[in-house]
Amino acid sequence: MIYFDNSATTKVHPEVMKTFVAVNEKFWANPASIHEFGHQTNELLQSARKQVAEILHTSPNKIYFTSGGTESNNLAIFGLANKYKTRGRHVLVSEIEHPSILEAAKQLMKNGFEVEWIPVNSDGIIVIDAVKKLLRTDTILVSVMHVNNETGAIQPIQEISAYVRQNSRAVIHMDAVQSFGKLPVHFGALDVDAITISSHKIHGLKGSGLLALKQFMEVEPMLFGGGQESGIRSGTTPVPLAVSTAKAVRLAHDNLQENAKTMKEITENLIPFLTSFPSIKLISPTNRASHIVSFSVRKIKGEVLINALQQKNVIVSTSSACSSRQTTTSHVLKAMHIQDDYIKGVIRLSFSAINTQEEINQFKKIFTNVMKVIKGD
């Protein structure tokens, strides 16, 4: 099998799985228990928290382990908006965010907040003038993803944050689910206040992730109970998941340059091949993360191409795995104003460091034969 759907999920790294199993076997006590076994388990949990905090350049008590990207994004949107609502009730969200941001923002509107959507250009990238036009003195939250999950477009976070800092008291949340491990992501490199990371996008386990806050930032809880995770996320902390998430974060951070180089070489091999087909339009912009390439075949539904490739044991996806089973057109593609001839035929290829040039060469041969069948090219 050739697996090119790594933006949907990645294969678990053997070291991460080894960590998960070992913690389950040796440190399965409740970390909130006051006996020695519980204390040892809690020490391991806090060690994992400290490790992540060092990588993200923040304090350990600002790392909150969650069930994944969706929960972390919801916690950021609701938690930050509610915490700082005394400053105002105006929120800015880019129109190409993941549904876990968009739907949470829509719920904010029902709760009395005013939400406005930041538009993007035809490359799917926010133009700073749009932020300048929408930002107000009563804006309390700006949420912009670092790398778009459908196109790989890198958003101008530094430019956005610089303007927001100079002209408002708004806090800035960045969804880094598709950028962590591919680009430098930490509070020292990017002037944001909150960062979302999902474990299974970086060869970790599903059902785990984290929300990291900048030092001195605060967030209101969404879950109430025993006060775990500094009172922000009540419920018994799943220590094996938290520790294995820290392991995945460490591996992704330590291998960033090598992995990014591998994925860049893969896509540099692939893109000239794809654009050699007259019926193919490249959807991903030039300024994109190296692990995502989206393209479209004119007047062909993406599902047709996906099924044809799957028959040859090649796994790809439509523009987003989160919406690939739905019949509605991607909100990201709509925001980019993709032409009607192409908007239904978008295919996303997404890579990880375990993909190889040999797989790309095999893909080229298979794809060429598939195109001959479905398009006659």
Rank of each mutant, 00 (worst) to 15 (best):
T275L: 05
S284C: 06
A289E: 03
H291M: 06
S290F: 10
T286W: 05
S279C: 08
S284F: 02
S290V: 14
S296T: 10
G302W: 01
S276R: 05
S276E: 07
K299Q: 13
K299S: 14
I300E: 03
K281F: 05
L305M: 09
L309E: 01
L282T: 09
Q310G: 11
L309M: 08
S296I: 04
S279E: 15
Q310F: 15
E303A: 11
S276H: 09
Q310A: 15
N287Y: 12
R298M: 15
L309H: 04
N287E: 02
I300S: 08
S276Y: 08
N287P: 04
L282R: 11
R298E: 15
N287F: 06
I280W: 01
V293I: 06
V293G: 10
Q310K: 15
S276W: 05
S284Y: 01
S296V: 02
V304S: 05
E303K: 06
I306E: 02
H291T: 03
V293S: 11
R288Q: 06
E303L: 07
N287K: 15
I283V: 11
I283R: 06
T275V: 07
I280S: 01
P285N: 03
K301W: 09
I280V: 03
S276D: 09
P285W: 02
K312P: 00
G302H: 02
L305E: 01
K312H: 12
S290H: 14
F295A: 02
V297K: 04
Q311K: 13
P285T: 07
K301H: 13
S294G: 11
K312E: 07
A308H: 13
K281T: 08
L309A: 06
P285F: 02
S290R: 08
S296R: 01
S276K: 06
A289M: 04
I292S: 00
S284H: 09
R298Y: 13
K281E: 12
F277D: 05
V293F: 04
P278S: 09
A289D: 05
K301Q: 11
Q310N: 11
K301G: 13
S279I: 13
K301L: 14
I292R: 00
V297Y: 10
I283E: 03
R288F: 02
S284N: 09
G302T: 04
I292V: 03
Q310M: 15
I306P: 03
L309T: 01
S290K: 14
V304I: 14
E303M: 11
I292L: 01
I300F: 07
S290L: 08
L309Y: 08
I280C: 00
I280D: 04
P285I: 07
K312M: 10
H291S: 02
I306M: 04
S276Q: 10
S294W: 06
F277L: 03
I280E: 00
V304K: 09
S296G: 03
S276A: 09
L309C: 05
I306F: 07
